[in-house]
Amino acid sequence: PDDEWKERLREAEEKNNWKLFEELARKAGVSEEKIEEWKRRWS
Rank of each mutant, 00 (worst) to 15 (best):
Ser31Met: 02
Lys39Arg: 12
Arg40Phe: 07
Arg10Cys: 15
Lys15Val: 07
Trp5Phe: 06
Ile35Tyr: 02
Glu22Ala: 06
Glu23Phe: 07
Ser43Met: 15
Glu11Val: 05
Glu14Arg: 13
Glu36Ser: 06
Ala12Thr: 04
Arg41Leu: 15
Trp38His: 09
Leu9Ile: 08
Lys27Arg: 11
Asn16Ser: 07
Asp3His: 09
Trp18Phe: 04
Leu24Met: 09
Lys15Ser: 12
Glu23His: 04
Pro1Leu: 15
Glu13Gly: 15
Asn16Val: 06
Glu22Phe: 10
Leu9Val: 05
Glu23Pro: 00
Lys34Val: 14
Lys27Pro: 00
Lys6Gly: 11
Ala28Ser: 06
Glu37Tyr: 04
Lys6His: 11
Val30Ala: 03
Lys39Val: 03
Asp2Leu: 11
Lys39Tyr: 10
Leu24His: 03
Glu4Ile: 13
Lys6Glu: 14
Lys15Asn: 14
Arg40Ala: 12
Glu4Ser: 11
Arg41Val: 10
Trp5Ile: 08
Glu13Leu: 15
Asp2Gln: 09
Asn17Thr: 05
Gly29Gln: 02
Glu36Asn: 07
Glu11Lys: 08
Glu4Met: 10
Arg41Gln: 15
Lys39Glu: 06
Ser31Asn: 05
Pro1Gln: 12
Asn17Gly: 08
Asn17Lys: 07
Glu7His: 08
Arg10Asn: 06
Glu7Gly: 08
Lys15Phe: 07
Glu22Gln: 03
Arg41Pro: 01
Lys34Arg: 10
Leu24Asn: 03
Val30Gly: 00
Asp2Pro: 12
Arg8Glu: 07
Arg10His: 10
Pro1Gly: 11
Trp38Val: 09
Ser43Asn: 12
Lys34Pro: 00
Lys27Asn: 08
Glu22Trp: 08
Glu13Ala: 15
Arg8Tyr: 07
Arg40Ser: 12
Glu22Thr: 04
Val30Glu: 01
Glu14Phe: 14
Lys6Ala: 13
Trp38Ala: 12
Glu23Val: 04
Trp38Tyr: 10
Leu20Trp: 14
Asp2Tyr: 13
Leu24Val: 08
Arg40Tyr: 06
Glu7Lys: 10
Lys19Arg: 09
Arg41Thr: 08
Glu23Ile: 07
Trp5Tyr: 05
Glu36Asp: 10
Lys6Tyr: 14
Glu32Gly: 03
Asp3Pro: 11
Glu37Thr: 01
Leu9Pro: 02
Glu23Trp: 13
Leu24Arg: 04
Arg41Ser: 12
Arg10Lys: 12
Asn17Leu: 14
Ala28Lys: 04
Trp38Leu: 13
Arg8Gly: 07
Leu24Glu: 07
Arg10Tyr: 07
Glu36Arg: 08
Lys6Ile: 14
Glu4Gly: 10
Glu32Lys: 06
Ala12Tyr: 11
Glu14Gly: 08
Asp3Trp: 12
Pro1Tyr: 13
Lys15Arg: 08
Asp2His: 09
Leu24Pro: 00
Lys19Tyr: 11
Ala25Gln: 01
Lys39Gln: 03
Lys6Thr: 11
Glu22Tyr: 08
Arg40Cys: 14
Glu7Leu: 05
Glu32Met: 06
Glu32Thr: 04
Glu22Asp: 03
Glu7Asn: 10
Ala12Gln: 05
Trp42His: 05
Ser31Pro: 13
Glu23Arg: 02
Asn17Pro: 03
Ala12Ser: 06
Lys34Met: 15
Trp18Cys: 09
Pro1Asn: 11
Glu11Asp: 12
Ala28Met: 12
Arg41Phe: 14
Lys19Ser: 12
Glu36Leu: 09
Leu20Ala: 11
Ser31Ala: 05
Glu13Trp: 15
Glu4Val: 11
Trp18Asp: 01
Asp3Val: 07
Trp18Thr: 02
Glu32Tyr: 04
Pro1Phe: 14
Asp3Ala: 12
Pro1Glu: 13
Glu4His: 13
Glu37Ala: 03
Trp42Glu: 01
Ala25Gly: 00
Ile35Arg: 00
Arg26Val: 02
Asp3Gly: 09
Glu23Cys: 14
Glu37Val: 02
Glu33Phe: 03
Phe21Asn: 00
Leu9Gln: 03
Glu32Phe: 03
Asn17Asp: 14
Val30Asp: 00
Ala28Ile: 08
Glu33Trp: 04
Lys34Ser: 05
Leu9Phe: 13
Glu11Leu: 10
Val30Tyr: 15
Asn17Ser: 08
Glu22Met: 06
Phe21Lys: 01
Ala28His: 07
Glu14Ala: 13
Ser31Leu: 03
Asn16Tyr: 10
Phe21Ile: 04
Arg8Gln: 10
Glu33Lys: 07
Glu36Val: 03
Ile35Phe: 02
Asp3Lys: 09
Glu23Asp: 10
Trp38Thr: 06
Arg10Asp: 05
Arg40Ile: 09
Ala12Lys: 05
Trp5His: 05
Val30Thr: 01
Leu9Ala: 09
Leu24Ala: 08
Ala25Leu: 15
Gly29Phe: 01
Ala28Gly: 05
Trp18Gly: 01
Glu36Ala: 08
Glu37Ser: 02
Ser43Asp: 13
Leu24Ile: 13
Leu9Thr: 04
Ala12Leu: 09
Arg41Ala: 13
Arg8His: 08
Arg40Gly: 12
Val30Asn: 01
Trp18Ala: 01
Glu33Arg: 05
Arg10Leu: 08
Lys27Gln: 12
Lys6Phe: 13
Leu20Ser: 07
Arg41His: 13
Arg8Val: 12
Phe21Ala: 02
Glu4Lys: 11
Lys19Gly: 09
Trp38Lys: 03
Glu33Val: 08
Glu22Arg: 01
Phe21Pro: 00
Arg8Thr: 09
Glu36Thr: 03
Arg10Thr: 06
Glu11Gly: 06
Leu20Val: 11
Leu24Tyr: 07
Trp5Gly: 03
Glu4Phe: 14
Glu4Asn: 11
Glu4Asp: 12
Ser43Gln: 15
Lys39Met: 06
Arg41Tyr: 14
Glu33Gly: 05
Lys6Trp: 15
Glu13Ile: 15
Glu36Lys: 06
Lys6Pro: 07
Ala28Arg: 06
Lys39Gly: 02
Pro1Ser: 12
Lys19Val: 13
Arg10Phe: 07
Glu36Trp: 06
Glu23Met: 07
Ala25Asp: 00
Ala12Asn: 04
Trp5Arg: 04
Lys6Asp: 09
Lys39Asp: 01
Glu37Asn: 02
Val30Met: 15
Arg26Asp: 00
Lys6Leu: 14
